[in-house]
Design a protein around this nucleic acid. Structure first.
Length: 479
RNA sequence: GCCUAAUUAGCUCAGUUGGUUAGAGCACAUGACUGUUAAUCAUGGGGUCCAAGGUUCAAGUCCUUGAGGGGGAGCCA
């Protein structure tokens, strides 16, 4: 007999058919004559209801059937006598494939805290919540590839180990095979990386952008989607030491094209979630509603699905940094000194309280801020004609803050070199990047989307450690 | 690394101005129940009160230091 997964089984109306189904026990409710097993195999949110009649199923089998146990069940699919499900399986044979000691199994059929589940990340897939998150994450991966593929982009695998240490995106993890207790030294007493595996110092990548630029300046439209590593001591709900980033790079494009692409991409993947993850989103929405019951009404946010539709139906607000600073200067919290950091003059870096004010209070929708002061942005960004700003753009989302950071790139050789000198970027290790400005340089632009931040928005989760299966963060690489 | 409130049973939490033998709900075990929906009812077992040191006749409770985690800020995606 062919095994049916739970997803197909629970919608089947092929009553009286013999079925085989396998999965893990979520709960078992017993009485004298009959027991009910809720069986899940990850194929969907809902469980299959298995009915075990004590006349057909030996007591020693049911004695081994606890939450977490793996079962193989043969039986007859029948219309359910109870409410809450279309059908159920009248078991004729139950085999316990893997027992689960109820005194030791940590996942109970009740609400657990996210902190507890994080400490049991090896088993948290077995909860409704993490099943839903895992399925939505998978759907979003496909949506991203689908979007770029439809638009004629090529996917580029940028290197994970990199020899350049000047990407400027943060602290890097060293990659070495040298003996840490006794490394070879140079004459001046420093570690001699010329003796290392690659003959030079290497790190885990903090961004695939520079490599994506090389590809874009031949293939026109490319994107990377790969792991990214930052050795920052960031202890927040929005940062990971290992995360996945999507970085499109487009030749013959300026910063406006860049914003159009970013907005279209975000809307496409949100629509994809609504179209393909309805059951999981409904569960996530209900969970959020329960969480928010404790909050005062004024602090409650829009229901999840409504929030996703809102993003689809509204154009993102596009304003320059200069306009944003003006709005903030004139804002109530700034005048009444309610901000922790008061905005006084042009050139100040915006804090997350300011971004939140613009997105959640002032515009009440996603905001793209452009043309930042060059002093607070990276060396490769296109310098504007005003001499003060660069053609950067950050997409800010409610609750999450910066979800995308991008820019048009400086394609002019002389301007790029001048800027690199000003910012002490070592040219000798970047010769390959600079070469692209010597040979057929063209205007081009791109951005980086933090995949887990996108998932925070789509799932309504608030801690980034809960939207990646095995989070890496300071002091933790347990699983 | 900074700020902040916390750390008590397997889980979620309560524990009064320091004072007998540290409690509840859920989970688990046993029993009851002819169909449950996180079933219900009864009974029972279950504690290094985060760690180390200190104050005190007496510390879960007060003080000091440390650890890991939460929330916030910074760095960013």
């Amino acid at each position: 007999m062919k095994r049916m997964n739970v997803k197909d089984l629970i919608t089947s109306t092929q009553f009286n058919e013999e079925v085989l189904v396998k999965g893990w026990v979520r709960t078992i409710r017993g009485s004298k004559n009959v027991s009910f097993i809720a069986l899940n195999d990850g194929s969907c949110m809902a469980n299959a209801q298995i009915v075990a009649d004590s006349e057909k199923i030996p007591a020693e089998i049911l004695d081994k059937t606890h939450s977490g146990a793996a079962l193989s069940i043969e039986g007859q699919l029948v219309e359910s006598k109870g409410k809450g499900q279309l059908n159920e399986v009248l078991a004729t044979k139950i085999e316990v494939l893997g027992e689960s000691n109820p005194d030791e199994y940590p996942i109970q059929p009740k609400r657990h805290t996210l902190e507890f589940l994080r400490e049991n990340a090896h088993l948290r897939f077995r909860t409704n919540l993490f099943g839903a998150i895992t399925r939505v994450r998978h759907a979003m991966i496909f949506a991203i590839h689908d979007f770029f593929n439809h638009r004629g982009f090529y996917n580029i695998h940028s290197p994970i180990i990199t020899g350049s240490d000047a990407e400027g995106a943060g602290e890097m993890f060293k990659v070495t095979t040298l003996d840490m207790l006794n490394p070879p030294k140079t004459e001046t007493g420093e570690v001699d990386y010329s003796k290392d595996f690659f003959g030079k110092a290497t790190n885990l990548t903090v961004s695939g952008q520079l490599e994506a630029e090389l590809a874009a300046l031949a293939m026109s439209k490319v994107y990377t989607f790969g792991p990214t590593f930052r050795a920052e001591n960031s202890n927040t709900s929005r940062h990971l030491a290992e995360f996945w980033m999507i970085e499109p790079e487009v030749a013959f494009a300026d910063n406006n094209d860049n914003m159009d692409l970013a907005e279209a991409m975000l809307k496409y993947v949100v629509q994809y979630a609504l179209d393909n993850c309805a059951e999981d989103l409904e569960f996530l929405e209900q969970r959020l509603k329960n969480e928010e019951k404790q909050k005062p009404e004024s602090e409650r946010s829009m229901p999840l699905v409504e929030k996703l539709k809102f993003v689809l139906e509204n154009d993102f607000e596009r304003i320059t940094y200069t306009e944003a600073i003006d709005i903030l200067k004139k804002s109530k919290p700034n005048k009444k000194k309610k901000f922790d950091y008061i905005i006084e003059e042009w050139g100040a870096d915006m804090q997350s309280e300011h971004e939140r004010f613009l997105v959640e209070k002032h515009f009440k929708k996603p905001v793209i801020i452009t043309d930042y002061p060059k002093g607070i942005k990276a060396f490769y960004m296109k310098q504007n004609d005003d001499g003060k700003t660069v053609a950067a753009m950050d997409v800010l989302f409610p609750q999450i803050g910066e979800i995308i950071g991008g820019s048009q790139r400086e394609e002019n050789y002389d301007k790029l070199m001048t800027r690199m000198k000003e910012m002490d970027i070592p040219e000798e290790t970047m010769w390959w990047y600079i070469d692209t400005r010597k040979f057929g340089t063209v205007p081009h632009a791109g951005y980086g989307l933090g995949f887990e931040r996108l998932l925070l928005f789509v799932t309504g989760m608030t801690n980034i450690r809960d939207v990646i299966p095995f989070p890496r963060f300071p002091k933790n690489a347990e699983f």
